[in-house]
Design a protein around this nucleic acid. Sequence first.
DNA 1: CTCTAAGCGAGACGGTACGTCAAGTCTTACA
DNA 2: TGTAAGACTTGACGTACCGTCTCGCTTAGAG
Lengths: 203, 203, 203, 203
Amino acid sequence: MERNDAEPAKRGRGRPPSVEVRRRILETAAVVLLENGVSEVTFDKVARRAGVSRMTLYKWFRSPGSLALAAFEDTYAHTLRPPSSGDVWADLRTHLREFVANLSEPRTGPMIAGLLGSAQSDPVLAEEISATFTRPRREGAVELLHAGRTRGQLPASIDVEVLVDQLWGACYARLLLPEGVLDEAFADALVANLRATIHASAD
Amino acid sequence: MERNDAEPAKRGRGRPPSVEVRRRILETAAVVLLENGVSEVTFDKVARRAGVSRMTLYKWFRSPGSLALAAFEDTYAHTLRPPSSGDVWADLRTHLREFVANLSEPRTGPMIAGLLGSAQSDPVLAEEISATFTRPRREGAVELLHAGRTRGQLPASIDVEVLVDQLWGACYARLLLPEGVLDEAFADALVANLRATIHASAD
Amino acid sequence: MERNDAEPAKRGRGRPPSVEVRRRILETAAVVLLENGVSEVTFDKVARRAGVSRMTLYKWFRSPGSLALAAFEDTYAHTLRPPSSGDVWADLRTHLREFVANLSEPRTGPMIAGLLGSAQSDPVLAEEISATFTRPRREGAVELLHAGRTRGQLPASIDVEVLVDQLWGACYARLLLPEGVLDEAFADALVANLRATIHASAD
Amino acid sequence: MERNDAEPAKRGRGRPPSVEVRRRILETAAVVLLENGVSEVTFDKVARRAGVSRMTLYKWFRSPGSLALAAFEDTYAHTLRPPSSGDVWADLRTHLREFVANLSEPRTGPMIAGLLGSAQSDPVLAEEISATFTRPRREGAVELLHAGRTRGQLPASIDVEVLVDQLWGACYARLLLPEGVLDEAFADALVANLRATIHASAD
DNA sequence: CTCTAAGCGAGACGGTACGTCAAGTCTTACA
DNA sequence: TGTAAGACTTGACGTACCGTCTCGCTTAGAG
């Protein structure tokens, strides 16, 4: 998100960036994000409310969306990566429940939806979100499913990459599309549906 | 999308809206939409390029997003609702392919993504999109799957509403999330995955 | 003010103008004039509040200012032309007091000021105001002073036309310029000043 | 007129206002003022013709009227405060002639009339005009007449404040009311009338 | 008793201006 | 050199009027 990721402060010359300033910026942005949503996280507003110069924001953040993302990460993102038990069904349930809990939480849900919405017209933001959120998530999911397949709990012929979209992607769809509710029951139903098909002909 | 949906023109009173003007508006908006994406479909720009008063736009369209949606519908939306054969697998394949074709078409894909993106910060737009797009689609899908289940091709215990998100929703996810490709192969893979699980235990 | 002053209704053809409509227009305009001042008497507002088509207003009134003037005349203008006693000093005092009372009345004063203000950028309105207000007033004043001069109460060498501006005009100045109060005391002071000079050298 | 009158620029912080921009604004406004009158001095028009952002105008000027006033001051206002000789009659004549010359000049006359007209519906503008124009004028006039009275040229009982309106105010009346001509002859006539009354009974 | 011109309500449309908000860029001074 | 403060541009939004232009209904006197 931030711009200076690579620059290592270039030999202590000049006035050093103020941590205090950065903190105030992110805190303010987080508040605005919470109160009014992504679309209200503007450089203008945050600068004014944080008592900070707009120039400073331009220096550290590429765009308002990027700022919002940084604030979100800084304040609301908590990825409590649940442990894997060895049983795909149990793991799936746990992971999806935790995932859905995040997406459907009244505070963070709309934020994530908003961020993904903004990303539709800002490829860079999309990439930033992908790097910090969706990609890691997907990798974890792939790993989980892969293990399940290896262990024989999932059919060998299954396409794991696609299955990820059929589980986690389905949740994103419920989050981003107007109709349909996203709750833990949905997470359970996803798993149930998968099991239902697998055990169907077994009966 | 348009504002006057409900009013039945109240018995010929007043000067009738100019079809010519309306046409120019939608055409221009469609062009802008194609060239620059949803976020560039602004009242200002469309009015200027269509040689139409901005006021007229405000009269007929609630917001730029709404205008973009109307233009999209008017010009790019073609729902060729494929026929149902009686075989779920064939039907699923056909429907999903047609669906994916729409979403992944280089012209319409980004438009839909952009519209859904805007809808994240405009509930009314979300509802409009739902009414004209996603809801009908979902209803068709539900129907299709329901038939399949009734016919016994899908396990009786399956949750159809959820399965829709696991198939069509997965496509939306691929469309809206940064990583992952959306093509007809993906559509096929979705169906294949489903079949794989169902036939898995049969072996 | 009204447009059709000259046209003699062209041989009774067609539907006659509705008195009811005209009444509603003028009443509404008068209310707006009272509540918000001349600058708020707009065709739009009056038409809406009177439940009348804007077209009708355009038909009968040349401009919003003109409408305001008509409403003012219709509702607030009362010229109680005081009688002449034969003594200039008494008459002057009476006339000026009555005049000032009109101009300084909290309701009508600002209206007149506003109308004269609008007239600065609308010559036609200026002429309309002149015809119905200022010119008659001036003529009465000239007559009064003329009589006084003939009777020998005012020096023969005095320029009556100019003196009118020094008395009535002074009141207009107080009305239209930011500084200076306009009240009956001012009217008296005007007369007193005039007498003071005349009797000065007599001492 | 300008907004920042009071703020003492707060010790060199921030980018200083561009003199060039300010010059272009006032020049353009002055031209529009000359060509089309006060009512055409609009933020839109001036911004466009000056090649300046409308925002900048909003920053420095409270209202179009205020801008017009500033332009007027900047370009057309020349107060050549004539010297006082010691003789009221001579001074009065000189001052009033100079005053009338200003008001009746084909360029500035209508401007002043227009400004005073706008002020009728804009109290703040009224105050601004008062501060820069009418009040100073009035003070000079009062002083002049006061001196005359002290010197015995005017009757001791005269109300100087009122007399100002009978002389200068009369000129304003001629300027602002439709009927009546305003020229130097009028100025002379004002003085003549005053002298006529004073010397009337002396004969 | 119809014809017809005008009055009228309703509303579309173009145009101009206002006032606001935000994104960006640039410039100056200070720590 | 980072930061604060602010000027300026650009462009969009939304509102308010103005003035003009259809429509179609209504009304009353002329034929």
